[in-house]
Design a protein around this nucleic acid. Sequence first.
DNA 1: CGATAATAGTTTATACGTAAACTAAGTGAG
DNA 2: CTCACTTAGTTTACGTATAAACTATTATCG
Lengths: 159, 159
Amino acid sequence: MSTRLQHELKKKQPFEVAEQAAALGLVRTNDQLQIHFSRLFRQFGLTPSQYNVLRILRGEGAPLPILEIADRTVTVVPGITGLIDRLEAAGLVKRARCDEDRRVVYVALTSKASKLLAKLDQPVVDLHKRLMGHLSRTEVNELTRLLDKVRSGLPESEP
Amino acid sequence: MSTRLQHELKKKQPFEVAEQAAALGLVRTNDQLQIHFSRLFRQFGLTPSQYNVLRILRGEGAPLPILEIADRTVTVVPGITGLIDRLEAAGLVKRARCDEDRRVVYVALTSKASKLLAKLDQPVVDLHKRLMGHLSRTEVNELTRLLDKVRSGLPESEP
DNA sequence: CGATAATAGTTTATACGTAAACTAAGTGAG
DNA sequence: CTCACTTAGTTTACGTATAAACTATTATCG
């Protein structure tokens, strides 16, 4: 095991700047939250990415082109193909070629997916409460505001 | 004017929305930041996970057992094997069996890794500043505090 | 002492993120 | 009309996250 001296040295690594502490905290917090949501979704046979796609389709209320879905997620274009493949294999979405522009593939929710989403709504809200319930409403709003502000000032990400 | 109804509306509905908004903001902000860091690390031939492992080893100042590294990242046990495999193949770490307990595998930084980390330090700080520079010092500290508070109240995640 | 449990790490299998290269279909300039 | 360009989507290749099952080694209990 490590010696006492090495232990002392380990503590001597402070964050060089406050920005770094915030960014690290953000990464760690996100990771922790994701763990809990992953578990919830897995109980329903879904991954977080799959749930996200289904939510987007429900929110739109109509079929969407595949690349439009990719745009609304962080998913990069090639990744969306396999994601939709697996959702289709699970009977949760259907693909349909557009007639006017045969390059476009529309993706539509199935009724099975609608029922699954409805079953998930309450557990998702409950989990949000459980994960953030120890913050006051003011704190939650302030956190949201600060996160929005971080994103608002970010450099463009599409080269 | 039905005060009870207003009370219910204020107390329940907006708060659930507020919590979801905060959680969503967190996920989106994290994704955006990760994009920029991934690009920086890629220019140096590293992935974010690999950089994270190297940082942990440098912070410790001594070789660490493989599972100790996994503990300090979000990496789950099986994932760490391949991660260390690739770092070893890149000449950035070395594996060494422990003599007292032959089950344990220590991982040590190579000098090549130390040089690489040193070259990355300034760009990493610069990127942090560029990504969070539009927030005031107070806001950055408040963001850090709120994120810490979120994590502090999270349910245990060790099944 | 020996059976058994616990620990450290790897292997296997599936899902996803990302870049690069590719196919198929629509658009536009000459 | 034809050839180059653009757009929508897929395939391919690699790195990583996760669960489940496995090997090897050490600890423990009866």
